[in-house]
Design a protein around this nucleic acid. Structure first.
Lengths: 186, 186
DNA sequence: TTTATAGCAAACATTTTGTTCCGTTAATTA
DNA sequence: TAATTAACGGAACAAAATGTTTGCTATAAA
């Protein structure tokens, strides 16, 4: 990919994130993005068809990385943290979020975090899905895809609660909470 | 309130719901709503400031009813279903959703159900909050507001899963799933 | 150095938004 | 029933946003 393309793409992503921290998704116009990114009108439309399209690609970009990293962790360590392997995937994800190497947290904290949470949960779903089947057999008589949804959903809701509360807990603490409400199910 | 006001307000709500079933929130224009509701441009702006405002009022209208009904149920019956009281608030909510007396289900099924789910969860939060404190003491060493969030979040995620799967389960069945994953926590 | 292509400015038609003015219609009240 | 009040609707309007075209410049890649 051309270096110029990469730079403008990054400039647009950056401008968009910046704007999302200031105002709601719906009130952000393409013109706003163009002005903030300081690019030509034509250039924007050469990269993205619409604002929704931009949002979609940004999400894929961001969660592609975080899930890829978690995928490795899930292979080396286990899915859940226990005495033998304290480094669960969930803890890893939380640490990744807190480190904020990318600006995921800013987006998850913004007014319209719903959009990102949906993407986040979908990514999680495919991450956990593989690991889930070969895990320990569930104690409960509920459908396995219900359980999968319950796990991913709860995790995303926890992250949301974490952020909304000012992220005063450590990732390890949160991981303990999460295991506490999930472990009885296995 | 004037009967004319009520009628046009209802016409706008109806048109809006109808459009949401067809296309995404962002692609719906005020003009679309005006045309579908078959009202004057001036009339729309006399009722709602913006499209976002309309969305907000629609949510308050819908969830105000469903939560009000559940509030009664929570008083007469318990929060959770057990042998003594099989009619839990959760089961009641699910039945209410399935009955589809209002068009909540249509909105929760639409492309942008995220918006409604947020409102739904917030409403749930305040519903459960009161009942939660005087409930049984939790077995787990986790903050009570974390638990509250976990319950409400899980419920909403379950409803989402239910709808996405075509609602093939009965409310009673779902209620059993939900109790199965929550009961070990108490 | 040459070639290909991304970027940009300016102008453009089109759509959407939100407001104003005024005549009409329907509800309320006397 | 008549008078009053207020909602409705149509038309026209300015302003803003969208999306596209054209032709020139700058820059990466070969």
């Amino acid at each position: 990919m051309d270096r110029r393309q990469r730079r403008t793409r990054e400039a647009i992503f950056s401008a968009f994130s910046q704007l999302l921290a200031q105002k709601s998704y719906n009130s952000i116009t393409v013109q706003d993005i163009i002005d903030t990114a300081d690019i030509g009108r034509t250039t924007f439309y050469a990269h993205f068809e619409t604002k929704d399209d931009l949002l979609k690609e940004l999400c894929e970009d961001l969660f592609g990385h975080i899930i890829g990293s978690a995928m490795d962790c899930a292979h080396t360590h286990g899915l859940y943290s226990d005495d033998s392997s304290p480094e669960s995937v969930f803890c890893h994800l939380l640490q990744h979020l807190q480190k904020n190497g990318s600006n995921i947290l800013g987006l998850l904290s913004c007014e319209n975090n719903d959009i990102f949470l949906r993407y986040f949960k979908n990514s999680l779903n495919s991450l956990i899905q593989n690991q889930f089947i070969k895990g320990r057999a569930p104690k409960l008589d509920v459908p396995s895809d219900f359980l999968l949804n319950h796990i991913c959903g709860s995790f995303v809701e926890m992250v949301l609660w974490w952020i909304k509360g000012g992220m005063i807990q450590t990732p390890e603490e949160l991981d303990r909470y999460f295991c506490a409400v999930l472990e009885p199910l296995f």
